[in-house]
Design a protein around this nucleic acid. Structure first.
Lengths: 208, 208
DNA sequence: AGTTGTAGTAATCAGTTGATTACATCAAGG
DNA sequence: CCTTGATGTAATCAACTGATTACTACAACT
């Protein structure tokens, strides 16, 4: 269909394509539910290639999850770098949470991280889950110069945001309880988030 | 081994056994990763029986998740029923969060709920996820007579608690960042939680 | 004793899944 | 031209999974 569809690419470029596809698929279906075949179809390559390039499904998930975690850290670092040092705590938290909401536009990123966090019991992926979370915590805690309590409060709000978006609470904006809960959680970004999430439909079912 | 092992039970009793097993298995492996065979082995019955009794894996997950949600609601109701009406907001929140921590002793319950919340995109299970969450919210919001902001703050803290336990942050109590984060999140219940979680090892790998 | 309904399983099936192998295609260098 | 190394796939495999079917075992009631 598209003019330059089945181009041969460098391994580097294919890697990026496959990691992006993995974020979408693992995000929607989790680690156990995300198949290498669905990732391959999403990336437009063969399933065999996906497996061989990453040496297995677990390694692919590791890389996808680490990318997601790194993107959160880097977004926070960019925001923090814009601080003049004269912000109030409230201003800092607002700026960081705006940054976080921006990341949420990528549902794969959000969901891949949440799925990672649910793997704490896994001998191979549990340590990764904990270190990814703590690395983000340390950026906020140390580089943004928040104290422990403020950082914890910020993360608590962030986790509620994450879970509400994970369960797609924005899909029922007319439910009174959902409305109230989202208004308190998302503040004046509520309507923006609802319209943002409307554009995110499930991935093409033909590649299932 | 045990004296009365392979007793015949009423369908009602088997149902409870299987639901308990499903909570453990779905909690550890998620909806996609939890197999009916693992649940059957955990419950001590055949895989065919599990499938037939519940009419399929999806129905079994629905019931397990609804049970988990109901148990949270009922624990909150019991706590709220003990209120005299003269508690401060802080006292109410503390009592409810103690109640929540008590529920966390059942890791299957905690994890089954978290996995449910990650299924928001699913046409069949997404609505269930949202309604289960909102039902708990309404109990807190209305029956405990919290205003929307206080209830939201309470839930934010609850979600951070849930995620920290999901990723088994209690397994690395010597990490300085983890230590600080848990101290701020769990307060003086931190050491209790750490020792509580030590007793919870992964389910028997022979039934994988 | 015989009937009937319920608890429960063994055997099996078709579809899926991660992985492996052998092979194909193409660009660049000599 | 033709070798070489990299990109990429088709075919296939063994293991797994949810579901179905046909069957057995037992308890209660007549």
């Amino acid at each position: 269909m598209s003019p330059e569809e089945n181009q041969r690419l460098t391994a580097e470029d294919r890697r990026e394509q496959i990691l992006a596809a993995a974020s979408v698929v693992f995000g929607e279906r989790g680690y156990a539910g995300g198949t290498t075949d669905a990732i391959a179809k999403q990336a437009g390559v063969s399933q065999a290639y996906v497996v061989r390039m990453f040496g297995g499904k677990e390694n692919l998930f590791r890389e996808a999850a680490q990318r997601a975690s790194a993107r959160v850290r880097e977004a926070f670092r960019v925001t923090i770098a814009s601080f003049t040092g004269e912000e109030t705590l409230h201003e800092k938290r607002l700026a960081l949470s705006m940054s976080y909401v921006g990341l949420m536009a990528d549902r794969g990123l959000l969901m891949t991280l949440l799925h990672l966090f649910s793997l704490g019991h896994d001998p191979a992926l549990g340590p990764l889950a904990r270190s990814c979370f703590l690395e983000v915590y340390r950026v906020t805690r140390d580089e943004a110069q928040m104290d422990a309590q403020d950082a914890t409060d910020f993360f608590a709000r962030g986790m509620l945001t994450t879970v509400l978006l994970a369960m797609r609470m924005t899909d029922i904006p007319d439910d009174p309880s959902a409305q109230e809960l989202m208004a308190c959680t998302f503040g004046d970004r509520t309507t923006d988030l609802i319209s943002l999430m409307q554009g995110q439909q499930p991935i093409d079912s033909t590649l299932r």
